[in-house]
Amino acid sequence: MKLITHNMLTSKCLKGVVTGYPLAISATNIKVTEVDFNPDFIVRIIPKIDWEVFWKAADSIGHSDGLPQTVESKLHDNNDFLKKVHRVLLEVEIDEGHLTCPESGRQFPITKGIPNMLLTEAENKFAMLLKSANDLYHEVFAPMPRQI
């Protein structure tokens, strides 16, 4: 799991959890894989990143070296800065470890770089709620034909 993914993930589907963001990272194995640098993509993705969360996550796994704590738009022309962001955002990967929900403490394992965000049946606060909401939605907006 890359930090770009971590920056977008929440555990808000858990019972009793409101925002579930950011998830804490505990890593037992971190890999760094070099991939092609595309400055345009980095410039495009920076506004979508919650920078504070990104910086803290990088710091928590020991990869915040040279990464500024705040981001300014003038940095967009700075190639060294973009390369640094590229590295921490896309090249550093948590291969083994887990993510922890900030509110409930529930842990989500990461194995072979793939986080498992599945809940157990009992944890799923939406189980009943969503089902009925969908039914209603289906009534109002999307009448369906018979399906396969």
């Binding site: 770009i4 993914t5 929440t10 589907c13 963001y21 991939v35 896309l90 793939i114 965000m117 599945l118």
Partner: peptide, 23 residues
């Protein structure tokens, strides 16, 4: 095209997973 691979996750699509403001 490995540089274009972000991640895959095990998750249940019927539940919210992503930040609300992610587009």
């Amino acid at each position: 095209i490995e540089s274009h691979y972000l991640d895959v996750l095990v998750s249940d699509f019927s539940l919210p997973l992503w930040r609300n403001d992610l587009k």
